[in-house]
Write a protein that binds this DNA or RNA. Structure first.
Length: 260
DNA sequence: AACCAGGCCAACCGCCCAATT
DNA sequence: CAATTGGGCGGTTGGCCTGGT
């Protein structure tokens, strides 16, 4: 399986930085024909580039909704929070930052935030050393999640209380789901939810993967637990990340429980 | 002015997955 | 059902830029 060679390595195709002329050709073609069919696009647009290169150029640079300029303090803060929640899921993180691309966020993380956090981590190293007893941080986190999801916590609704409070003030886009008297994200003590969260725990136990385990949790705490987390659109998972005000503080508490 | 080191970021690479054949 | 294709993703690279010496 897998590719024998990159499409970009075929002979006769341009590589490296894009010229203004290439950009213009690509933009004109997409404006007239729309996105997609990337493999066929270069030929039709008169470009000597591979389709993947065209797609990347469009997605990361030429799209009209791309936001230019420095990452703001709010965006910076959100990236850190989302990274704590999602790990290196750059596309998911970018999805929460309108106008920002996964590549941009990834670069920003690697060049700014990872170093900043490394300093913080270093500062806290002494304390962490006492607690770590040789486990990797992710292993420790995974263990924490596993412990948190034990039957006692689930049965008394600790996790639910953290997440499932009053309505969702933000995210009108995702607010079309039912609701009524019940919480936006589910119902405290709902047996079905508990079962789904347990499923998340089992996934975590099998994989030992912290973020995978979190996905299981989210699935359990979501409206529709049947999807993979990255397939959930505009509903519960989106609402989780759309939370504002008091609800967001509670989400942070939930995250902090696992990540601190 | 010249050189060097480090940072930044656009672009490439390789893998994965879903859809199609 | 297996092979192929297309699209997407995260990791990595390499060239340019900038600041320090």
């Amino acid at each position: 399986m897998g590719r024998t060679s990159s499409c970009c390595s075929k002979g006769g195709l341009h590589k490296g930085p894009w010229t203004a002329r290439e950009d213009a050709l690509l933009v004109n073609y997409i404006q007239q024909n729309g996105e997609g069919h990337w493999r066929a696009l270069p030929k039709k647009a008169g470009l000597l580039r591979c389709g993947k290169s065209c797609r990347l150029r469009w997605m990361n640079y030429l799209r009209p909704d791309i936001k230019r300029g420095n990452i703001t303090a709010d965006e910076d803060d959100l990236i850190i929070k989302l990274h704590s929640l999602l790990g290196n899921r750059w596309s998911l993180i970018a999805g929460r930052l309108p106008g920002r691309t996964d590549n941009e966020i990834k670069n920003y993380w690697n060049s700014h935030l990872s170093k900043r956090l490394a300093i913080i981590t270093k500062d806290n190293a002494g304390e962490a050393k006492k607690e770590s007893n040789g486990e990797t941080s992710n292993t420790r986190k995974a263990t924490e999640v596993w412990s948190f999801c034990n039957d006692d916590n689930l049965s008394n609704g600790v996790g639910s209380e953290l997440l499932l409070s009053s309505g969702n003030q933000g995210g009108e886009d995702g607010g079309s789901r039912g609701g009524g008297e019940t919480d936006q994200l589910g119902v405290n003590g709902d047996e079905e939810i508990v079962e789904k969260v347990k499923g998340g725990r089992e996934e975590l136990e099998e994989s030992g993967d912290f973020f995978g385990g979190c996905e299981g949790l989210y699935k359990g705490l979501s409206w529709n637990g049947s999807e993979r987390i990255d397939e959930i659109e505009d509903d519960s998972y989106q609402q989780l990340l759309n939370l504002e005000g008091e609800d967001y503080i509670q989400l942070e508490s939930f995250i902090d429980y696992f990540l601190i």
